[in-house]
Design a protein around this nucleic acid. Sequence first.
RNA 1: GGGACUGUGGGGUAGCUUGGUCCAUCCUUCGGGGUUCGGGACUCCGAGACGCCAGUUCAAAUCUGGCCAGUCCCA
Length: 475
Amino acid sequence: MVELPDKSASFVEWYLAVVEAANLSDKRYGVKGMNVWTPYGLKARRNLDRVLVREIEATGSEAVEFPALIPATEFAKEKEHIKGFDAQVFWVTRGGLSELDVPLVLRPTSETAIYPIFALWVRSHRDLPLNVYQIVNTFRYETKTTRPFVRVREIHFFEEHTCQADEARATERVASNLEAFRRMAAAFALPYIAVRRPEWDKFAGAHYSIAFDLPLAGARTLQVGSVHHYRDNFAVPYGIRYEAPDGSVRVVHQTTFGLSERLLGAIVGVHGDAKGVVFPTEAAPYEVVVVPVTTAAAAEKVGAAAQHVAETLKAAGRRVVLDAGEERPGAKYYRWELAGVPLRIEVGARELETDRWTSVDRLGRKEPVGRATLAADVAARLVAFDRELARRAEAALAASFAPAATLADLHGSRQVRLVGWCGAEACGHAIEQAIDGALLGTPEGPLPFPVVAPASCVACGKTLGVRLAIAGQPM
RNA sequence: GGGACUGUGGGGUAGCUUGGUCCAUCCUUCGGGGUUCGGGACUCCGAGACGCCAGUUCAAAUCUGGCCAGUCCCA
């Protein structure tokens, strides 16, 4: 029997307990920040990857894989980048018994592994755009407390790297990535806000960074991914140049798009409830669980019917698990609810006398599904489930933001705050200090809820050039 | 980066102050048997632990040190 801590009262405790109880990850490996992917957790992760791959490939990106080790000499070429990552890399300094002449960095991100090769691949304007992505593990020497999926040292990382002919085309690629992320997030019923990070918080080496933030609990937010415009900041030191149609030699402009298993953390954190995980259909390791409700009299018939239901759904392409175990039905319900399966179908003697099965979705909504129309009815129920899940998440997101007119409002805030900001770094830091968190930045595009434009900077009171900014506490 | 606390079967705990009573408590879990089965069944039998390495001691889950890991707080 599993008792979960209260989600709204102690979010972090709840999160850790859910991840463990649902068996998504095993944190007993014994190296800080490096957890074991369990069969169940890995199924979910692969579903996320499947959607990411589908959506990024729809934009003309191709998969590649680069090595995990980067020579120190290459790593050091872009000086803002190395400044940003120097303190959080693992080094490989020895090979067997001998010291390496050139130490190797275990990639914390792959710019410096990929760009020397991009310089070889890109020769002509005909080679552009170059859009590639990889899904690999990256490593960061995280010193803070690590948490499954959210802050780890071995990161399951999706990263797209592109080369474009000029700055405008790179800007277009950024827009395309924002759109791809919109589709990915929608697939998981995850509402979010896209935020342009302030100068002091952009990716090391970027011209600008746009991050995807989700409110979790109180003022806490989780960045699940980001898109960066590099301009030619990397292309110059790495010599990524091409010959234009007019014969001139030009430097490419680059973008990247990064996501990680934080997406899974976000699904757990946003959709999960007092009973456990709630998986949106696309992410769910199993979309449907079939539970036979047996009695001594009808055991055989019920068992055969349950099996038939499972097989019918499998044949229709559903991920299905048939729980024919010895436990009583109630115990199974609790277990599969903890695991977050979107839809349960109950097959018992009662149903055998009708032409329907009972189905209950993870939000507790009970409805019959037709025997003859099983696959179609289940599909419809799952669509309705995802829609309701999204609706609830959107309502929760809207409720987690509140405007703040003064710095005092930010103290001990239980919500993410919308503030006026003049753009000055000093004011930004004053805001960060007040909320004991970060100025996440300025919204990129419209927010998914109504907003009143602020009149003045919450820190200095100036009205000139004031824009809407978001302040919260990144997890 | 700084500090605090914690580490006992798969999970949660009692025991630690004051070393011997402990081949270690209780709940859960796991394996086997029986009766059951529409929201966490009951019962019988069985399995399973003192984070790691040193030290102190006749004797260490218990005391000391280091390491590793986890949790929390602060920059």
